[in-house]
Simulated assay, not measured.
Amino acid sequence: MVTSKKARRRFKPPLSRSEVMSRVRAKNTHPEMIVRRAFWSSGLRYRLHAKDLPGKPDLVFRSRRVALFVHGCFWHGHEGCPNHRIPKTRSEWWNAKITRNRERDADVKRQLEDLGWKVIVIWECETGDGLVVGQIVEEVSQSDKFP
């Protein structure tokens, strides 16, 4: 039986776990882009992923000394959120991983605050609500500017 090239191209074997995880982005995620667009449209300018600051904040407002993180509910363990659920396979490993992520987040926040930065965290589930994003834009715009 001879199959056409078109028929062969349509069949795609399922991706392995490794292939799926390799496609998870750390930068320029959909929630991050929503937040970035809101700040840009309000006239607030920012720097992205500042490597000189602990934790490489997603958005950095240097003149206001504000560091903003857009956390994914799954990866950073947003309690009470339906997007945060531990997978049933290897649940012990996932619990340990998310716990380490939370500990690292708390440590990075403490380091930034010790350096005099205000730290704001917006969760992935909050980015769909324009009101929450608008409140954070307002909070940053009212922050005092540093010389």
Rank of each mutant, 00 (worst) to 15 (best):
T3V: 09
T3S: 09
S4M: 06
S4P: 04
K6M: 10
K6R: 02
A7R: 11
A7W: 13
R8V: 02
R10F: 11
R10I: 05
P13Y: 09
P13S: 07
E19C: 02
S22Q: 04
R23G: 09
R23M: 07
V24K: 14
V24D: 14
K27L: 03
K27H: 10
N28C: 11
H30C: 10
H30P: 00
P31E: 12
E32Q: 01
V35I: 04
R36E: 04
R37K: 15
A38T: 01
F39C: 02
F39R: 06
W40V: 09
W40C: 12
S41K: 14
S42F: 15
S42R: 02
Y46P: 02
R47I: 02
L48Y: 14
K51M: 13
L53W: 05
L53R: 04
P54M: 04
D58A: 03
D58K: 07
D58W: 01
L59F: 07
V60G: 08
S63Y: 05
R65M: 13
A67F: 11
A67Y: 12
L68A: 06
F69I: 03
V70F: 03
G72E: 00
C73E: 07
C73M: 02
F74T: 05
G77T: 08
H78W: 10
E79H: 07
G80H: 07
G80V: 05
C81R: 00
P82V: 03
H84D: 09
P87Y: 03
T89M: 11
R90Y: 14
R90Q: 15
S91H: 14
E92K: 12
E92S: 13
W94N: 04
W94L: 03
N95D: 10
A96V: 14
A96D: 08
A96P: 05
I98W: 10
T99M: 11
N101T: 11
N101F: 12
R102H: 13
D107I: 13
V108W: 01
V108G: 00
K109L: 01
K109T: 05
Q111A: 03
L112H: 04
E113F: 10
D114G: 07
D114K: 09
G116Y: 10
W123E: 00
E124Y: 11
E124S: 03
E124T: 08
C125L: 03
C125K: 06
C125D: 14
E126K: 00
G128E: 12
D129I: 10
L131T: 13
V133L: 07
V133Y: 10
V133P: 08
G134Q: 08
G134H: 05
E138D: 14
S143W: 14
D144P: 15
K145T: 14
F146T: 13
F146Q: 13
